[in-house]
């Protein structure tokens, strides 16, 4: 059987592994053959056990552009096959196998970063937990190239569980992003609202109205994305302008 070479596979060297939240680490990878990636892309990580057993999982990329430095932020899923290894075992100097960049559906600007695509369309990002990773990439890219209104509604358990908190705060400080936090378990001291899950009313209050016709990118655990996408439709957002990416927490 002949086939074309798998040009999309790369060997990455871990340059840095640092704590991102109490359960997650940020991994900076050096991937000399990486062709660059659009904001919102993901990649597959493949691990091979000594007996040849292979497991592959998808992770969003927090960085974008032509660089061959690729940033991931990985949350350890209890009983997971790959994430506990990436979070607890992998250290600088280790090598891992990657396939990517992948996932043109979830990119901003839409259409593989087509320069002719309309970056003036308002963008609403809705993140649950580590689902903020591709949305942080989009926010950072948007801040760089400019565009229409940009807003992020970010649901996390507690302030300590927020990914890319200093970076997001800096984007807010620079006037490039409007950020609305929803804390589900514990809030910062003096927070105006009690901790609690996102509701339809809370979503409406903290997002760009449907009448502004934003493109909405929603990423998080499956139940979170299902709930948010359903409410967005009820609030009048068109289905084709709601882009979703779900991951399994268990």
């Amino acid at each position: 059987m002949t086939r074309r070479p798998s040009v999309g596979w790369h060997v990455a060297t871990v340059v840095e592994s640092s704590p991102e939240t109490p359960s997650a680490r940020r991994l900076v990878l050096d991937v000399p053959t990486w062709p660059g990636n659009g904001a919102g892309a993901h990649l597959d990580v493949r691990l091979t056990a000594p007996d040849g057993y292979q497991a592959t999982r998808s992770y969003s990329v927090a960085s974008s552009g032509p660089a061959t430095r690729v940033v991931l932020a990985v949350d350890a899923v209890p009983d997971g096959e790959i994430s506990p290894f990436l979070v607890n075992e992998v250290r600088a100097g280790d090598q891992i196998e990657l396939h990517g960049p992948l996932g043109r559906y979830f990119l901003w600007p839409p259409g593989d970063g087509d320069p002719d695509s309309d970056t003036g369309v308002p963008v609403q990002l809705v993140a649950g937990g580590s689902g903020v990773v591709p949305l942080y990439a989009i926010a950072a890219r948007h801040a760089e190239v400019g565009g229409g209104e940009l807003r992020l509604a970010y649901s996390v358990r507690t302030p300590a569980d927020a990914f890319f908190a200093p970076e997001l705060t800096a984007l807010v400080g620079a006037g490039r992003l409007r950020l609305d936090w929803v804390y589900t378990r514990a809030t910062p001291a003096g927070w105006s609202r009690d901790a609690g899950r996102v509701t339809r009313a809370l979503l409406q209050e903290n997002t760009i109205p449907a009448t502004h016709r934003p493109t909405v990118y929603c990423c998080g655990p499956t139940p979170f994305v299902e709930a948010v996408a359903g409410w967005l439709l009820e609030l009048g957002h068109a289905p084709e302008r709601i882009l979703t990416e779900r991951f399994g927490g268990s």
């Binding site: 999309g8 990649l43 592959t56 998808s58 396939h99 979830f106 499956t222 779900r246 268990s250």
Partner: peptide
Amino acid sequence: MQVDGNALAGILEDG
């Protein structure tokens, strides 16, 4: 583990 069609990107790209 339940995810969505985004997770098929790598498999289908390979194939």
